[in-house]
Structure formats: structure tokens, C-alpha cells
Design a protein around this nucleic acid. Structure first.
Lengths: 357, 357
DNA sequence: ACCACGATTGAGACCGGTCTCACAACCAAA
DNA sequence: TTTGGTTGTGAGACCGGTCTCAATCGTGGT
């Protein structure tokens, strides 16, 4: 139905020039607002442009300016409300500066991330915003940086790349949250993350800058402050999907000393935990306390309303966009602002149950 | 930090040709896999390309093929999980066919939609997927259609444009849901939508194809089947944001014959209703029954789990992408498949309370 | 009247690819 | 040996803009 015959080919600057009776160069100058143009020519060209309903071809413009006015966003999963809110922040800011955004999902697979970066480079985006899915495999990032591309990281840092990363700082909010759990009497607090287990997180250095590492650090600090030592067996990686989470919960509850509280590293895990609890008739916070990262509208609507550590996702989105665009323009913006996560207390914390059952 | 000096300019096909000792045309043929190329040249060019780490400039390619391998998505608010799930469906399918997606938010403002369409046209996207925010102001769509652009609508139809629209069919699921409410004894069932009130929805024709119209139709059918007449004063437009929703709920409960059930046209409204109920200590379903459109993971986690009318959003997203790309390629795909919405019964329906208080 | 200088203007190169066309080389058929 | 048809190849036009450069024009200074 649609493109019956591409009816009228879109008018080009040559058409406008002919209509106005001037040279291509002159028409371009009039429309582009650069160089010197007389009143008369300006008027004629504007009229011609209006008559033909001329719109400049951005592709052609990009060709020789080298700027495409487009940002590339490489993200794990845009369906995840965390990222879609970030995208909203990014595109709102970008739009205000005349940039558009191409989004590509990686599903947290490095191979896909590599492809995505390449595709976006090929499309000559002016800047790249990347949520790197593996802090160790970053050759592709290093390579595009060498080519002079502007890259900004979001949500996760990578050491040694020497580029900005917009992240929230989780240590203090986490320490505060875990402190409350400890005060309530919890000792066995499990941490669930979708992150794959890199042989062991205890190698520390590798993960030292990721949000997960920060959160675990905050957790350990809280234990230390209480004069306790955290049992790192309670950190569970690879909690992707409801089945995995379900299995992990079973494991945690069947330990010699069962977990009495769960920290969910993101909203998907938290939902899986909630679902599993409902299935097994476990009541929160009576049977299990729950802390989740990120605050979404529904978290205060569930039963019980969830205590969460929130980060200003939308604002962080705006900030990556701001810094990326500044980078493109060659501006310096000073140090990355600290986005501090904060604890929002609702009703998913309670005293631990004494014994099993 | 980033673009210190754009270190090495990206190699072009000329560089490859020189390195391989052949003409530009020949190098292009070898790389592009068209025309006739001898074994020897092929090998030399491939080697040169690998050495230089050559990547073709998609912009330049787009220039004269006229195809940018990019889709434009114009959507109300990507933060809305309904749309972000749809986007996921769209980009997954698009990616599989070698297309990328530029997303622009309209905030449901026609003016912004107009701009968005223009910007995307200027960037020469190959096809446009639009969630039109006003079924009456569609000149900009009509115009790009005349220019031969491929456009597919999503979520909402517009009459007289003669293009595909991917929507779910809501009549029967809604009739079923409302039938259950009527059977439980409800008579005063309110419908809340963010849609602005076009003087009055009773003009019918204007809204005849929108999802909202379909839902109201299903609602009225259910009443008719029960031998009742629906009081159209119970349809409340313009329910944008928690405050509006809050005001509307107050109004509904203070009517001479108060509403005993609420139908929320989208998840944002439903959340606002839930929040308001919590604030006013109204219990669902004891004091008020609630039906919401769209099914999201959290709907079965809230208190109580929500009865919803679900639509296969992800699949619908895939389908728009499929049809848009088919349109670009000039293929015909036959009639648009019917996506039937279906009722998922959970626990937010109950008997209406007898009197006030 | 003559020259310098700035404002206007058009010709044409260029961005990095694709693609048409003419021509050379090669082989089999006549 | 001449003819015809197939590769293989390079030259160069083209996509639709931007931008450099030199030429032209008008004008004030001397």
C-alpha cells in the first residue's frame, strides 16, 4: 500500500537553487545560515524552499561534516525499567541538544555488545553510551576510543579506560540498610545478583568498581561495624530468571544456618523472590526480610511495600547524555558528579524468625 | 580525555584499494560481494581490509543506496513499560533483519510528534513506526506517506490513512471482564483513561477505532447483554498523573450513586488508583473492584493481585517491525493478524459494598 | 580617476561509498 | 583466423550536501 511509486522524490538543494535562480552554493549558504548572502537572494531562496517544501538530507550533511547528531546507546535490556527510565533521561537531554538516540540491547552478552558497538560506529554515531556487560572484556571499547570516538559508561565502571562513568555510589546507603537488618537481629543476609560468578568475587580487584562490588563492600562494612564477619558464601551470583532465583532461595533456606534476609540486586530478582515467597507461603517480613535495589512505582504497592535503595536514574541518564555531548563538542565538564543512592524504608524489614520453621 | 586528536582517521575504501594495489571500484566489488572479482584480487583486498581494519561507512553507503537500515519509532513515553516492552519486540525483530531503531518520545503531544516525524524523515529512516497521539491530527503522517515513506501504526488506529495498524482487539475480553463484574452485582463501573476528552466520546465516530473506544464498546455490550444501560458519565477522560486520578476517584465515590468498580485504561492509572486507595484506606476488592489493562510482572505481586486484560505486547512489537520492514522491501504480507486481548483473573474483583460506608 | 577592500557569487572539489560503462583479456565455436 | 560471449578491470559519474577559492561587484579613500 505504502510506497506506491515514491511519488515525488524529495527536493534537493539543487532544486531549490534552480527554483530560486541561484547557484547551489548560494542556496546552501542561505539555508545553512553561513557565509554571506544578500537580502534578495535570501528571500528568493527561502521562498523557493517553502514552495518545494524542502528539507535538507541529514545523511548528506553528516557525510562531510562528520557529525550525525546521533547517540548510540548500548544497554543490557531496554525492557528493564531501570534502563528504560535511564533512556528517558538520556533522550530528553539529547533531544534538547538536537541529538537522537539509537538503542541496542545486548542481553548482557559481550559478543552482542561488541557487535552493537561496531554497528553504531559504522553508522557514525557521534557518541556512545555503554552499559558494559563485562568489565574484563573491553577491547572493543578500547579500540573505538583509539579511533577517537567519544564513549561514556553508564551504571558500571571499567578501570583503566580513562573515560567517564556515571554511576551511583552505593556503599553508604547499603551500609545503612544492612546496619538496620543487623540491628533487627539478622546475621545471615544473602546477596543475589545476576552477575556471573567470575571464578570468585573474592578476587576483589576485578569487581572493585562495579555497583555490585560497592554494595557488597557496604554490606561488609556494616558487618564490620557490628564487630561481625560476613560469610561470603551468602553471595549468590548468576541469579538470572525466576527458576534460578527459586533454586537459590531453596538452597539458602536449607543451609545449615539458613538465610533470614535477602538483598536483591535488581528489580527482576526482587520480583522473582516475591513470587517464590508467595508460592512457598513465605511471608515477608515475617519469614524473610527483603531489600531491593532501585525504586519503582510498584515497589510501594506490593505486599508488603518494599524497603529499597534508590538511585536517581533519570537524572543519571541526563548526566550521561550531557557528558557525552560535551565530549563530542570537545568541552571539558570537570569531575563526574557523585550520585548518592539513598535508603527508602518501607515495610519489608522485620525481625528474623528464631529457628527453622 | 576522549578524542585527543582523532588519532587515526578511519580507513576508507580508497585506502584499502591502494593497499591492495587495485582500483577503488574493484575493492568495493570485492568487499561488497557484487560484480565479478578474480580470486587473486579478492584475496588481496580481503587481506588489505583486514590489515587496515577497514569498516565501510554506512552513511556513505546510505547516501546512494537510499537505504539507511534504520527504523524510526515515535512513541508516547518509552518509560511506560507497555512501550518499552513493545520496543524490545521491535528491536529484536529489526536487529535480526539488520535494522536499528531510533526512538523519540512525544509525551502524547501532537506538536512533538510532528517534529519527531520530521526529524526522522530528515535522517532518512527507511520506515516509521508511530503511536499516533491524536487520531484527528494526522496531516504530517499523510504527508510523509505521500512522499512514499513506509509508515506503520502501533497501538492505535487512524481511519482513512490506508496503512497497517497493529492493535489488539479488546471488545470480547472487556465484555467478558465487565460481565463478571455485573454478575457480582456491580452496576456503577467507572472507566478511567488518560485520553483527553474530545468534547465527548459519544460522537463515537472519531474514536471508533481506538483501543479506548473498543474497550468502552465491550463494556457497553456487557451491559446490554445484561439488559442494562451504561451511564456514560462514568467514563472519565484526562486521567493523567496521580493528582488527577485522585480527584476523579473522589468524584466517583461522592456521586449520588457512587462507582463500585474502576477500570484503569493503563498501568499508570492503575498504580495511581492503588496508591489512592491505600491512602484513603479503601480495600480492594472489598470497597472497590479494579480491572486494569496490560499485564506486567508486578500486577500479580501487589495486594491484591490484579485482574487484568492482557495483550501480547512483545509479539505485537515484533509484528509491527515485521510489517514495516516488509513494506520497505516492497513485500505484501496479507491482512494484519488479529491480536486478541485476554482476561487474566486474579483477585481484584469482589462483590460491591451495599451502601455508602 | 584609480586602487584597496569587503560583500556576493558561482564553479568545482570533496565526503566515502555504489554503480554504469567501456575496454582488455581470454576462451570456445565457426 | 575471425567472431561472439564471458569475465575482470579501471575510469568516472553520482548521491546531496559543505566548503574553499577565485572572480565580480560596489564603494570609500586619496
Amino acid at each position: 500500500m505504502n510506497g506506491k511509486k515514491s511519488s515525488k522524490r524529495a527536493p534537493t538543494i539543487s532544486d531549490v537553487a534552480r527554483e530560486a535562480g541561484v547557484s547551489r552554493a548560494q542556496a546552501a549558504r542561505a539555508l545553512g545560515g553561513y557565509g554571506a548572502v544578500s537580502e534578495a537572494v535570501m528571500a528568493r531562496v527561502e521562498a523557493a524552499s517553502a514552495i518545494l517544501n524542502y528539507r535538507p538530507n541529514q545523511l548528506a550533511r553528516s557525510m562531510n561534516t562528520g557529525r550525525s547528531q546521533t547517540l548510540g546507546l548500548v544497554v543490557g535490556d531496554i525492557e528493564n525499567p531501570y534502563f528504560s527510565l535511564a533512556l528517558r533521561g538520556i533522550s530528553d537531554f539529547a533531544r534538547g541538544e538536537g541529538y537522537d538516540v539509537i538503542t541496542i540491547n545486548t542481553d548482557e552478552k559481550v559478543e552482542t555488545e561488541r557487535d552493537a558497538v561496531r554497528v553504531l560506529m559504522d553508522k557514525r554515531v557521534d557518541g556512545l553510551i555503554v552499559v558494559p556487560c563485562d568489565s574484563r572484556q573491553t577491547d572493543h571499547l578500547r579500540q573505538v576510543l583509539e579511533e577517537g570516538q567519544v564513549v561514556t559508561l553508564f551504571d558500571r565502571e571499567v578501570e583503566g579506560l580513562g573515560i567517564d562513568a556515571i554511576t551511583a555510589s552505593f556503599v553508604s546507603a547499603t551500609r545503612e540498610a544492612i546496619g538496620k537488618l543487623l540491628a533487627l537481629g539478622h546475621r545471615r543476609i544473602a546477596y543475589l545478583t545476576t552477575m556471573p560468578d567470575y571464578s570468585s568475587y573474592r578476587q576483589g580487584a576485578l569487581l572493585s568498581v562495579s555497583p555490585v562490588a560497592q554494595r557488597i563492600k557496604g554490606l561488609e562494612q556494616a558487618y564490620a561495624e557490628a564487630g561481625l564477619l560476613y560469610d561470603s558464601d551468602l553471595v549468590k551470583f548468576n541469579a538470572m530468571g525466576p527458576q534460578k532465583v527459586s533454586a537459590i532461595i531453596k538452597e539458602l533456606l536449607n543451609m545449615h544456618e539458613p538465610a533470614t534476609a535477602i538483598v536483591a540486586s535488581d528489580n527482576l530478582i526482587a520480583m522473582a523472590v516475591l513470587k517464590e515467597c508467595r508460592r512457598c507461603h513465605l511471608r515477608i517480613p515475617r519469614d524473610l526480610s527483603l531489600l531491593m535495589y532501585d525504586d519503582f512505582p510498584w515497589t510501594e504497592l506490593v505486599d508488603p511495600p518494599l524497603t529499597v535503595v534508590a538511585q536517581p536514574v533519570y537524572e543519571m541518564g541526563q548526566e550521561v547524555a550531557r557528558r557525552t555531548i560535551a565530549g563530542i563538542r570537545g568541552q571539558k565538564l570537570g569531575p563526574v558528579p557523585q550520585f548518592e543512592a539513598n535508603l527508602i524504608e518501607r515495610e519489608s524489614f522485620g525481625r528474623p524468625r528464631r529457628c527453622k520453621d
